[in-house]
């Protein structure tokens, strides 16, 4: 055991810790992004609101999300420790350093990019996560006629707003009642906290959207270095695989994921308002 801690405290071990937590967070970012794609659905937020309930109640996911918060902390604290330690390794700076001639900007600014992301995470969670968990929020009642092909004029996919004070917990039930033509029909009723509405409301502010987009640019640069760097740290590097890891990693983690994330606030600001 002492050897394990000696490892973790060594400069190489701390890199391993950085790489391990970082790769886990890459995976989280991937899942988070794919789930959030439901914001783009034109269904009054039903799918997204259902997804929010699932993510916060399904036991396995709850466990994973707490592990995730912990690893964010470990990644950040270890990062600050290393930045500080590495600064001490060069007490006197060069007068004329041309650092960009030998290393990429993102690789040299991981601490800065990480700090931007940490601030973003705090603000992001302090907003949506905190409000979803602890603040009464407006809810939506989604009513869908089932069991029969809907005829014209029937209330199909009705959305009714429930005041925050009237909403207790998510519900899912069916009712039988007359439809508009007077025949009996079955309706599925789903009542959910309207996180979607919260999101749509928040992204009406151009300043807030700008902040989100900026954070996603930071994410892009952070992962452009971070993802492939983790493999180098684990010693997974060969002439064949290094370009593949770099290429695919950059495509997915530095371009596709941050771009789709950034598209969400922009979508609410410019298209869905």
């Amino acid at each position: 055991m002492s050897k394990f801690f000696e490892f973790l405290n060594s400069s190489v071990g701390r890199k391993w810790l950085m790489a391990f937590t970082g790769l886990f967070l890459c995976l989280f970012v991937l899942v988070h992004m794919s789930g959030n794609l439901q914001l783009f659905k034109n269904d009054g937020g039903k799918a997204f609101n259902q997804y929010a309930v699932f993510m916060t109640t399904f036991p396995l996911i709850k466990v994973v999300s707490y592990v995730n918060y912990l690893l964010i902390l470990v990644h950040a604290l270890n990062g600050f420790y290393l930045v500080n330690k590495n600064r001490q390794a060069r007490p006197v700076k060069y007068a004329g350093a041309k650092s960009d001639a030998s290393a990429s900007w993102s690789s040299r600014n991981m601490g800065l990019l990480g700090t931007v992301l940490l601030v973003f995470i705090v603000i992001h969670m302090g907003h949506f996560w905190r409000e979803f968990h602890f603040v009464p929020m407006e809810a939506k009642q989604y009513i869908t006629k089932i069991g029969e092909i809907p005829t014209e004029g029937t209330p199909f996919d009705t959305v009714i707003t429930i005041q925050a004070k009237d909403f207790k917990e998510p519900r899912h039930y069916t009712i039988n009642q007359q439809d508009m033509s007077g025949r009996m029909a079955t309706y599925e009723v789903v009542e959910l906290k309207d996180l979607y509405g919260e999101v749509a409301e928040a992204f009406k502010s151009p300043l807030y959207v700008a902040f989100y987009v900026l954070a996603m640019i930071a994410l892009s640069y952070h992962l452009a270095h971070g993802f492939q760097s983790a493999f180098q740290t684990f010693g997974i590097r060969s002439k064949t695989y290094a370009p593949i890891i770099k290429g695919l990693g950059n495509l997915l983690f530095a371009i596709i994921i941050p771009a789709l994330f950034a598209a969400m606030p922009l979508y609410f600001l410019f298209i869905k308002h």
Binding site: S10, S11, V12, R14, K15, L82, K85, N86, Q88, A89, R90, S99, S102, A103, S104, S107, R108, M110, H225, S229, Q232, T233
Partner: peptide
């Protein structure tokens, strides 16, 4: 070697490849 490397006050590698 790594033990001495760290003791001598060299920093930790961040794979900048400079």
């Amino acid at each position: 070697m790594l033990k001495v490397h760290d003791e001598q006050g060299f920093g930790a590698c961040t794979n900048t490849e400079a």
